[in-house]
């Protein structure tokens, strides 16, 4: 069993970046100065990843105002809508409003990805919204049914995957909190399967992952085990993974062991004990270890502190049979 530790979503902005972006809104600094700071802070995130052995590298997604904004601002068919609560958190996103069937603008989203120009940083992971969560949280005024939209988004995201592979990304993770927060049923479940089949075809053997959080993965587990991805990630603060039936076919399992809802640092030994017992039952090919929900629910310093235990977790699991 291979053990991988990696960032699983957006990283918090540093206090310097907080100040700079506030200043930008108040007209006290320039876009150029803030962009420069974004680059420096992305490099800091990359250093944290390197120092702690977190890979594939994600880069932090510091510029993304929310999970959907790069798409809502660059793909055709969308406008950026009202502030909407981001699940049961004190964060908000601007709801994408879809006025016509969406169309991808090639290369537009790639420009938003962290590490976009840093081709020497490898292996790299692109973190993208999952088709079900994307479709479910937008205001769909396009006339297209939810099922058709989910499937269409799967195809469009598949095209993104294909293009990103060409520029060196090797791993593709799809954020799907809605899959466990509000699991699909009936035809919508089948649309989710079809969407991920489209993504899998475009991935052509690259590693793909679905990451779930903000809900218990138990009810959605039968569907999650059907999806053609390399890894399914679940949030251990929400899900009792020991109660989940092992999938019929062995594959990767992601464990969200770091809880960004609290600044309390998790005990690596406790994580190793739990992950070991889960691995014994689930027998995954690969074990991904990271945070449940993205770490941007925390400020920068506590987020970095909470990552510091991951090398010990990796070593602890390697000692019990995993290869880090």
């Amino acid at each position: 069993m291979q053990v991988v530790t990696s960032l699983t979503g957006a990283f918090p902005r540093s206090e310097a970046l907080v100040q700079a972006t506030r200043d930008l809104d108040r007209g006290r600094t320039t876009t150029e100065a803030v962009n420069e700071l974004y680059l420096r802070t992305e490099a800091e995130v990359a250093q944290v990843e390197e120092r702690l052995g977190l890979e594939p590298r994600a880069g932090g997604y510091l510029r993304w105002q929310d999970l959907f904004r790069p798409f809502a601002e660059t793909w055709e068919g969308f406008t950026v809508g009202p502030l909407t609560r981001w699940f049961e958190t004190n964060q908000f996103f601007r709801q994408p409003v879809l006025h016509a069937p969406p169309a991808r603008v090639a290369g537009a989203v790639a420009n938003w990805l962290p590490l976009a120009g840093a081709t020497e940083v490898r292996p790299r992971k692109a973190i993208l919204p999952g088709p079900y969560t994307f479709a479910g949280l937008m205001d769909n005024r396009s006339g297209e049914t939810s099922e058709a939209l989910i499937h269409r988004l799967g195809r469009l995201l598949g095209e993104e995957v294909r293009d990103l592979r060409a520029v060196g990304y090797t791993t593709f993770q799809f954020q799907e909190p809605l899959l466990v927060n509000r699991p699909p049923e009936g035809p919508r479940s089948e649309a989710v399967v079809a969407a991920y089949q489209a993504i899998a075809a475009a991935a052509d053997g690259s590693t793909t992952a679905i990451w779930t959080y903000f809900g218990d993965a138990g009810p959605a587990w039968p569907l999650l085990t059907r999806l053609p991805v390399s890894v399914v990630g679940v949030d251990l603060s929400e899900t009792d993974v020991l109660q989940l039936a092992p999938p019929g076919e062995r594959r990767g399992l992601g464990l969200g062991v770091i809880d960004p809802h609290t600044s309390l640092v998790e005990d690596p030994a406790e994580i190793v004990r739990l992950a070991r017992s889960i691995a014994e039952r689930q027998r995954p090919t690969t074990l991904w270890i990271g945070s449940g929900a993205p770490l941007d629910l925390l400020p920068w310093e506590p987020a970095v502190r909470k990552l510091h235990g991951l090398p010990a977790v990796r070593q602890g699991l390697a000692a019990s049979g995993g290869n880090s």
Binding site: P12, V18, R22, D25, N90, F93, S263, D296, P299
Partner: peptide
């Protein structure tokens, strides 16, 4: 107080533990 958390866009709030 442990730092700022983003509320949305470039808006943040100071959060304590």
């Amino acid at each position: 107080f442990v730092g700022h958390v983003r509320s949305f866009d470039n808006k943040y709030y100071l959060k304590a533990a």
